[in-house]
């Protein structure tokens, strides 16, 4: 039940884009087309699930036993940066097309606050290893759901008559706000499910 709670919570209630404000830069940057958004989503799901597991080991096997929790930020960001480099090499070797499509955003997963954010949330919420991994996976899926929905909306802008001054970022923020408020609808469902 706890796992279902974390899974649905990460996907719908504490959605990284609509509720927690994590990973907004790539959300705005790579959502121009559904295909690129899907590619980025896969990279983020992979990295965030891995990062949740790896940072858990570093937190509970290294930082806590030696009493150096204040090094958390430095250790986590280095672990994530290494992990991202690894994913980048794998994508470059296996799919140059995808690598080209993601452009500068793949190295920038390092500075994607969603990855470090989920690692820190795991520590704050005091999750065990499996809960951390489930949370990382669910949060990444929530992020992906948001970016895929948004890319779909964004493709429609091409044929829509948007006021000139709102084109680009302003309309992106306003649409995201509307999506965010519609996601509040899930909270009622959630409360009745876990009463």
């Amino acid at each position: 039940m706890t796992y279902l709670y974390i899974l649905l919570g990460g996907l719908l209630i504490n959605n990284f884009i609509f509720q927690r404000f994590l990973g907004i830069c790539p959300f705005l940057g790579v959502s121009k087309r559904v295909e690129t958004a899907a590619g980025m989503s896969m990279a983020v799901i992979f990295v965030m699930t891995m990062a949740s597991a790896v940072t858990w080991f570093f937190q509970h096997m290294l930082l806590v036993p030696f009493g150096v929790e204040y090094l958390q930020t430095i250790v986590f960001i280095l672990v994530i940066a290494t992990l991202v480099q690894f994913v980048e090499m794998v994508v470059l070797k296996t799919s140059p097309v995808l690598y080209q499509a993601l452009g500068i955003y793949l190295p920038l997963i390092t500075t994607n606050c969603a990855v470090l954010g989920v690692a820190l949330i795991n520590v704050v919420e005091n999750y065990n290893l499996i809960e951390s991994v489930v949370n990382g996976f669910a949060s990444a899926c929530g992020w992906s759901l948001a970016i895929l929905l948004f890319a779909g909306i964004r493709e429609r802008w091409e044929i829509t008559d948007i006021p000139d001054v709102l084109k680009g970022f302003p309309i992106a923020f306003i649409s995201t706000g509307l999506m965010s408020i519609s996601f509040y609808g899930f909270q009622g469902l959630f409360q009745s499910l876990f009463k």
């Binding site: 609509f18 509720q19 404000f21 705005l28 006021p163 000139d164 001054v165 709102l166 084109k167 680009g168 970022f169 302003p170 309309i171 992106a172 923020f173 306003i174 995201t176 706000g177 509307l178 965010s180 408020i181 509040y184």
Partner: peptide, 29 residues
């Protein structure tokens, strides 16, 4: 959270309105 997105969007829009040049504006995003 929705208020944050709307405020940001509308402020960016107002900023574009204030700095709009009579000629073609630089396309963004």
């Amino acid at each position: 959270p929705p208020g944050a997105f709307w405020t940001m969007g509308i402020l960016l829009g107002l900023m574009n309105l204030a700095t709009r040049k009579p000629k073609k504006r630089r396309a963004r995003a």
